[in-house]
Simulated assay, not measured.
Amino acid sequence: MARLLIIHHTPSPHMQEMFEAVVSGATDPEIQGVEVVRRAALACTPVDMLQADGYLLGTTANLGYMSGALKHAFDVCYYPCLDSTRGRPYGLYIHGNQGTEGAERSVDTVTTGMGWVKAAAPVVVMGPPTKADLTRCWELGATVAAQLME
């Protein structure tokens, strides 16, 4: 069975809504043969990343950068996972109030270095998520999970 790892930093009600929509999409009953594992970014380990076949990354945009929690996950896992996770698909969702470009760029830089493949366009939300934003989050989760179906 394929494993999808959701690495998330969810410090606010807005991020919680987005996280729940991503999980809902990834666990849609029509998607078969994919185990979805959730890890808070501060608890993510190299073993978590190595055991996964694909990734969904959730972060806030903080001062024009990814959250410190997601950065910590990458700091801990980067070298132990570098050669073993190349070519794996990932998706990204970001919440910010302004200036999310730097957060997106910082995640792109790390994932490019790891050799991961962007499976879908990032979902970027500013302010309270709308119904359309949450639908895009659901679609992101479903898209990445469906790519892992056996």
Rank of each mutant, 00 (worst) to 15 (best):
residue 1 M to Q: 09
residue 1 M to R: 09
residue 6 I to C: 13
residue 7 I to T: 13
residue 7 I to C: 11
residue 7 I to A: 10
residue 8 H to V: 10
residue 8 H to L: 08
residue 9 H to M: 02
residue 11 P to T: 12
residue 13 P to D: 12
residue 15 M to Q: 13
residue 15 M to C: 13
residue 17 E to H: 14
residue 23 V to S: 04
residue 28 D to L: 09
residue 34 V to Y: 07
residue 36 V to K: 00
residue 37 V to M: 15
residue 37 V to D: 07
residue 42 L to H: 10
residue 43 A to Y: 07
residue 46 P to G: 02
residue 47 V to M: 10
residue 48 D to Q: 11
residue 49 M to F: 03
residue 56 L to A: 11
residue 57 L to C: 08
residue 57 L to V: 14
residue 57 L to R: 13
residue 59 T to N: 10
residue 60 T to W: 02
residue 61 A to H: 06
residue 64 G to H: 10
residue 65 Y to Q: 13
residue 67 S to K: 09
residue 67 S to L: 05
residue 67 S to P: 04
residue 68 G to Q: 11
residue 70 L to C: 03
residue 71 K to F: 06
residue 73 A to K: 08
residue 75 D to C: 06
residue 75 D to R: 09
residue 78 Y to D: 01
residue 78 Y to S: 02
residue 79 Y to G: 09
residue 79 Y to H: 15
residue 81 C to F: 05
residue 81 C to V: 05
residue 83 D to L: 07
residue 84 S to G: 11
residue 86 R to T: 15
residue 87 G to Q: 14
residue 88 R to M: 03
residue 92 L to Q: 08
residue 93 Y to A: 14
residue 93 Y to H: 15
residue 94 I to G: 01
residue 96 G to H: 15
residue 101 E to W: 04
residue 102 G to W: 08
residue 103 A to K: 12
residue 104 E to V: 09
residue 106 S to W: 10
residue 109 T to L: 14
residue 109 T to H: 05
residue 112 T to P: 03
residue 112 T to W: 03
residue 113 G to F: 13
residue 114 M to F: 04
residue 116 W to Q: 09
residue 116 W to P: 07
residue 117 V to F: 04
residue 119 A to I: 01
residue 119 A to M: 01
residue 120 A to P: 07
residue 120 A to Y: 02
residue 120 A to T: 03
residue 122 P to F: 10
residue 129 P to N: 09
residue 130 T to R: 03
residue 130 T to A: 06
residue 130 T to P: 05
residue 131 K to R: 12
residue 133 D to M: 01
residue 134 L to T: 12
residue 134 L to S: 06
residue 137 C to V: 00
residue 138 W to V: 02
residue 139 E to G: 00
residue 140 L to I: 03
residue 140 L to M: 09
residue 147 Q to N: 03
residue 147 Q to H: 04
residue 147 Q to A: 07
residue 148 L to G: 03
residue 149 M to D: 04
residue 149 M to S: 12
residue 150 E to G: 08
